[in-house]
């Protein structure tokens, strides 16, 4: 079902977001965005043998922000850390069949969240 400015895929991930929640003792946590500017995302990663085996998120934001968060978690699960780090906001937006131009920043937030969580993982696991 398409809603307002959004594609059916965005609405699906917004109304039925995947991987909402928190991972206890997560291997990497990334928090990006600013709630005063309308969105903020917290991403939790579980990493085993150089691969992301689980990802969960909590997001404060509009439909596009929640859908981008949900899609991102689906995209990074099973990926190596290098593959996950290479994910761009365009790839997130494309996977959602596109975002309205004014909502592109929501996909940027998703890209930044995975990079921040990976940075946190590296910090916790030096060498």
């Amino acid at each position: 079902m398409a809603g307002g400015p959004y594609t059916a895929k965005v609405m699906d991930h917004f109304m039925n977001p995947r991987n909402v929640g928190e991972i206890e003792n997560a291997d990497g946590v990334g928090e990006v965005g600013n709630p005063a500017c309308g969105d903020m995302m917290r991403l939790y990663l579980k990493v085993e043998e150089g691969k992301i085996v689980d990802a969960k998120f909590r997001t404060f934001g509009c439909g596009a922000a929640i859908a981008s968060s949900s899609m991102l978690t689906e995209m990074i699960k099973g990926k190596t850390l290098e593959e996950a780090r290479a994910i761009t906001n365009q790839q997130v937006a494309e996977a959602l069949d596109g975002l309205p131009p004014v909502k592109i920043h929501c996909s940027v937030m998703a890209e930044q969240a995975v990079k921040a969580a990976l940075d946190d993982y590296v910090k916790k696991n030096p060498g």
């Binding site: 917004f14 309308g38 969105d39 934001g61 439909g63 592109i104 920043h105």
Partner: peptide
Amino acid sequence: EALLLNLDMMGIACSSGSACTSGSV
């Protein structure tokens, strides 16, 4: 907006004052 869209999906029409502009809401 997330509230508004969810309510819209339930047939409820209301309004949010915020306007999403490029870069931030």
